[in-house]
Simulated scan of single mutants.
Amino acid sequence: MKKESMIWYDRKRLWCGLPWTFTKYGMDEGRLFVETGFLNTKEEEVRLYRILNISLSKNIIQRIFGLGTIHIDSTDLDLKCLRITNIKDSDHVKEMLSEKVEEERLRNRVSAREFMNHGEDGDDTEADLDSFEGHEH
């Protein structure tokens, strides 16, 4: 993860707001990165268009020190649930991330689709999917 190529970059901070941890977060035009560790490091990434849901939480200590935690749900197999913990300016980062996710969905022609099952036994799910996609039986 090269800091220079990032749109956004921050470190996980301690409860008091100091960046004395070895967890780093970054976002470039199409991906969100999480790097952890000091001696043994691990870098994970999720494509922005795979992100389904973004939420923000702030406990009282985080609010006092200007921090927040962003919760992300995605369709990625490795990073289904991701928490960007104790970051500065979390409101702005959440909004920026949300905008970038929408841009990437449009650019990659990907849309998040939700289906509701109206049948009691679940047999009509396939028919709902087929009719949604324009297929006929």
Score class of each variant (00 low, 15 high):
residue 112 A to R: 09
residue 75 T to D: 09
residue 78 D to Y: 02
residue 110 V to A: 07
residue 77 L to Y: 04
residue 94 K to L: 14
residue 103 E to N: 11
residue 69 T to F: 05
residue 61 I to Q: 12
residue 96 M to A: 11
residue 67 L to Y: 06
residue 67 L to Q: 09
residue 103 E to S: 07
residue 93 V to I: 15
residue 100 K to H: 09
residue 114 E to G: 10
residue 68 G to N: 08
residue 107 R to L: 12
residue 63 R to E: 02
residue 69 T to W: 04
residue 85 T to P: 03
residue 110 V to N: 06
residue 81 C to G: 06
residue 65 F to H: 10
residue 65 F to P: 00
residue 103 E to R: 01
residue 79 L to V: 05
residue 86 N to C: 12
residue 91 D to P: 08
residue 60 I to R: 13
residue 107 R to S: 12
residue 68 G to Q: 07
residue 78 D to L: 05
residue 81 C to K: 09
residue 114 E to L: 09
residue 91 D to L: 14
residue 76 D to E: 06
residue 93 V to Y: 06
residue 75 T to I: 05
residue 107 R to D: 10
residue 76 D to K: 03
residue 80 K to W: 02
residue 103 E to P: 00
residue 108 N to D: 04
residue 73 D to W: 02
residue 61 I to R: 14
residue 89 D to G: 11
residue 74 S to E: 07
residue 96 M to F: 08
residue 72 I to S: 05
residue 82 L to W: 03
residue 76 D to T: 03
residue 87 I to A: 04
residue 94 K to N: 04
residue 109 R to D: 08
residue 92 H to C: 09
residue 101 V to E: 03
residue 71 H to P: 03
residue 99 E to T: 15
residue 92 H to A: 15
residue 103 E to Q: 13
residue 112 A to W: 05
residue 79 L to Q: 09
residue 80 K to Y: 03
residue 94 K to Q: 13
residue 71 H to R: 08
residue 101 V to I: 14
residue 64 I to G: 05
residue 79 L to N: 13
residue 66 G to A: 07
residue 99 E to M: 14
residue 112 A to G: 08
residue 87 I to P: 01
residue 73 D to L: 04
residue 111 S to F: 05
residue 63 R to M: 05
residue 78 D to H: 04
residue 60 I to T: 13
residue 68 G to S: 12
residue 85 T to F: 02
residue 62 Q to E: 15
residue 103 E to G: 00
residue 74 S to I: 03
residue 105 R to H: 05
residue 111 S to M: 07
residue 99 E to H: 13
residue 109 R to A: 08
residue 111 S to P: 00
residue 59 N to D: 15
residue 82 L to T: 08
residue 59 N to A: 09
residue 75 T to V: 10
residue 95 E to S: 13
residue 89 D to T: 10
residue 88 K to T: 14
residue 64 I to H: 10
residue 61 I to F: 14
residue 114 E to M: 10
residue 98 S to K: 14
residue 106 L to N: 15
residue 109 R to E: 11
residue 86 N to L: 08
